[in-house]
Computed example of a mutant assay.
Amino acid sequence: MGKLLYSATMSLDGFIAGPGGDMSWLTRHLGPNPEIDELIGRIGALLVGRRTFGGDDPHRGTDKEGKAFGGGWEGPQFVLTHHAPETVIPGVTFVGDLHTAVKAAKAAAGDRYVSILGADVARQCLEAGVLDEILMIVAPVMLGDGVRMFARPDGDPVDLEQIRVTELPHVTNLWFRVRSS
């Protein structure tokens, strides 16, 4: 079975989205990233939070809008929500509980990664003990407010093992393995 990977671009002060879920800040930080280009080919499914699925898009107003990884990836998406829309969306399955969503996404991904999109879903996966790896792309900007990469007030520390760090002129990739407790 594949691994669950939480990946996102975050500001230096720890936000993956600005106030109200604004993603427009991200557009100027998207650029060539060979590690991400290689990773996209190793993703077999997406596990997406409902707010992320219906939220802002850094590609808004372009032909890449609404497409995973700006159109660089296609495949099955599993959206974790208690309120599935009545309209069927091709390639998207709405799932009401975390364990069912993880199981379905892993089955669809086979031996490839399940990429988690959404801070709350990533937190839930971490707390459930099913999150395997974290890849944060740190952009040289501070947003000051917004959606935290990881928010767990009163939570215990999470031990990580560094896999690699890749420095690029416009971002830094930080890849970690979640250590079992």
Rank of each mutant, 00 (worst) to 15 (best):
V121N: 02
L160W: 02
V141K: 01
I116E: 02
H59I: 04
G155K: 06
A108Q: 07
D154W: 09
P76M: 11
F69C: 09
A109L: 05
T100L: 11
G72Q: 12
R60W: 04
A128E: 14
D154H: 11
S115I: 03
V121H: 00
V138E: 13
E65L: 12
D132K: 06
I116D: 00
G75W: 01
T62R: 07
E127I: 09
Q162N: 11
I163M: 12
D156T: 14
M136H: 06
R50H: 11
A128D: 12
G155V: 09
V114A: 06
I116A: 03
A45F: 04
V121E: 03
V147W: 00
P90Q: 15
A84M: 06
A108Y: 05
A101Q: 07
R148Q: 08
I137A: 06
A119K: 03
V102F: 04
A68K: 01
K64A: 15
G44Q: 07
P157I: 10
G49I: 01
E127K: 14
G72C: 07
I116H: 01
G75F: 03
V48I: 15
I89Y: 09
V95M: 13
L47G: 02
D57T: 02
C125L: 08
P157A: 15
L131D: 00
G72L: 13
E38P: 03
A68R: 04
A107M: 06
D120F: 05
E167Q: 12
G146F: 01
G155W: 02
T100M: 06
A128T: 08
L160V: 04
A84P: 09
W73N: 08
R51E: 12
K64T: 05
H82Q: 11
A104F: 03
G55M: 08
D63Q: 12
R60S: 14
E74C: 10
G144C: 10
H82G: 12
E161P: 05
L135K: 04
G118R: 01
F150A: 13
R112L: 15
D145P: 03
G96P: 11
L143A: 04
